[in-house]
């Protein structure tokens, strides 16, 4: 139980870490285009992202695939930038393009999973005499809990901004997606220098 809680907490801390915003910014940018009343679509979107990152986290965590850390660090902000551009290019909340959104969430989830695996493998470096499956499961569960917290807080802020401050959802999407894109560009430049 102690070990389960340790890795669960590591998962939550990793994704909600305010000093390392990449995964959090991606999730926020991914959800920016949706209003609260579209919670079912948000749920499907986040589930698609979860499936994506779980697959690569498990494969890389179990050493079935190898991951180029530098490449993944560059690709993660690229996923944020592309999501941001995709959001900004849409004139209204997507209906026809929703399937494409799910596909992007799934595909980009694969890349973020490799990022999670870098952190997970770091936690396990040199600890070779114990099974990796249980820590991997606990860590991934922690990532999911953290993800739910991020989406919950973001939707609450979204609600406050659009209802209390009467900000139009389109303006909200522009700011959040624009900020997401700005952050991603900064990260890409930093990764390339």
């Amino acid at each position: 139980m102690d070990q389960f809680l340790f890795y669960l907490k590591q998962g939550i801390d990793h994704i909600t870490d305010l000093q390392g915003l990449d995964h959090m910014v991606f999730i926020i940018t991914l959800c920016a285009v949706y209003q609260l009343n579209r919670w079912k679509q948000i749920l499907i979107l986040i589930t698609a992202f979860t499936i994506g990152h779980t697959v690569t986290l498990a494969l890389a965590g179990l050493d079935i695939i190898s991951v180029n850390q530098k490449l993944v660090e560059t690709l993660i902000p690229v996923t944020i930038l592309l999501t941001s551009i995709f959001n900004l290019a849409q004139k209204s909340t997507p209906d026809k393009k929703i399937q494409l959104n799910y596909f992007l969430a799934l595909t980009f989830g694969l890349i973020h999973g490799m990022g999670f695996s870098n952190f997970f493998r770091s936690m396990m470096m040199g600890i070779s005499d114990e099974s990796i499956v249980f820590p991997l499961f606990s860590f991934n569960l922690g990532i999911e809990v953290g993800q739910i917290i991020i989406v919950g807080v973001f939707l609450l802020v979204n609600l406050i901004m659009t209802r209390l401050f009467a900000i139009k959802h389109r303006d909200w999407n522009l700011v959040v997606s624009g900020a997401g894109g700005g952050i991603a560009l900064t990260m890409i430049i930093k990764a390339m220098i």
């Binding site: 000093q19 390392g20 915003l21 952190f119 900020a179």
Partner: peptide, 18 residues
């Protein structure tokens, strides 16, 4: 909000020993 978010940017450094 935009300014705050953009200036709080940071990647995900892994600084750890086990």
């Amino acid at each position: 909000l935009f300014t705050f978010i953009c200036f709080s940017v940071s990647a995900h450094p892994i600084k750890m020993t086990t």
